[in-house]
């Protein structure tokens, strides 16, 4: 049973095709991660699932039906940018958002979530007094407080410190454990790798990856070497069989030409420097992302840490 079934959906804005002939199925109770470069079509897809945008062609079934307004009550939504009434008090606001979803027993659930996310002391404060991270947590509660069967989170970890990231991550896992389906978009590949049952990547409106992490990595094979040497990246220049070096400072990630033997790489590096660590691995999601979204995104990736 799938919670969401997207069939050959296309959505254009003027001359721009935001989503192009997309088909996707999200199984019930799964965590589905949406990744893709900025402007790839993630948010448009999420908004179409939410029935905020209507596709130009194709069908979207949620809970086996095409959405007709009230169907959205079973979906919790955290938009990419925070949408909170600044002048309202936190508890009032959460109850109001819950009421718009026809939620039951909201007072109790709001208080439980506020306590869970360490916001009880802010319940009667105005939203405008909250920090960015706190606002993010309030927005998260707004998405989940009505106990929806599907939650859609558009970049839920943006602006959160590691402690709060963990809090939200645990909350998402707990909600999933209760049978709720979770779809979220993220730019954090580590989070996607660790949390998602399925990963979907969209690039220029088209689906380029869809499946479990293992299945996706299997497509690429074990073509990656993670290596630490005493001379860092200097010792790794111009090696045979290496297409690309990702230099992370303390660690370098080498992408081998398909079919090349890692033993030969090992031998070549030993002849140049002392090796402190050597691992033959499947490519990380980050690397796969960069390979697909290159060349534009590849430039940016050098600066990023994994």
């Amino acid at each position: 049973m799938n919670t969401v079934d997207i069939e050959q959906v296309t959505k254009t804005f003027g001359q721009v095709t935001a989503v192009d002939n997309l088909s996707l199925s999200v199984p019930q109770g799964s965590i589905y991660g949406f990744i893709g470069p900025n402007g790839a079509g993630k948010t448009t897809t999420l908004r179409m699932i939410m029935n905020i945008f209507w596709p130009d062609s194709g069908t979207i079934l949620v809970f086996g039906e095409e959405l007709q307004g009230a169907g959205t009550d079973r979906i919790g939504y955290l938009p990419e940018e925070r949408g909170l009434y600044k002048k309202m008090k936190v508890r009032e606001l959460l109850q109001f958002y819950g009421e718009l979803k026809n939620g039951k027993g909201l007072r109790r659930d709001v208080d439980r979530w506020l306590e869970r996310l360490d916001l009880s002391n802010w319940a009667n404060k105005r939203v405008e007094t909250l920090s960015k991270g706190m606002s993010q947590k309030v927005q998260f509660i707004a998405a989940v407080v009505s106990l929806p069967d599907l939650i859609i989170l558009d970049e839920p970890f943006t602006g959160l410190d590691p402690v709060n990231t963990d809090v939200i991550r645990e909350a998402i896992l707990e909600i999933r454990a209760q049978g709720t389906t979770v779809i979220f978009s993220t730019h954090d590949m580590n989070v996607a790798e660790r949390m998602c049952d399925y990963i979907f990547m969209i690039h220029k409106g088209r689906k380029v990856l869809d499946g479990t992490l293992t299945a996706i990595q299997d497509e690429y094979g074990s073509d990656t070497i993670r290596i630490r040497t005493e001379d860092d990246a200097k010792a790794l220049q111009n090696l045979d069989g290496i297409e690309k070096i990702n230099d992370f400072g303390q660690l370098q990630e080498l992408r081998m030409t398909r079919g090349y033997d890692p033993q030969q790489v090992l031998a070549a590096v030993i002849s140049r420097t002392r090796i402190t660590s050597f691992e033959v691995a499947r490519p990380s999601l980050h690397d796969i992302f960069v390979r697909i979204a290159a060349p534009e995104a590849e430039e940016e990736s050098h600066a990023q840490d994994t």
């Binding site: 939504y77 949408g83 718009l100 927005q139 707004a142």
Partner: peptide
């Protein structure tokens, strides 16, 4: 304001634009 603060998007996640 609701549009620029993206509140509209949250509301539209619960009801139709006309509502």
């Amino acid at each position: 304001e609701e549009k620029t603060l993206r509140i509209a998007e949250v509301i539209l996640g619960s009801m139709r634009p006309f509502q």
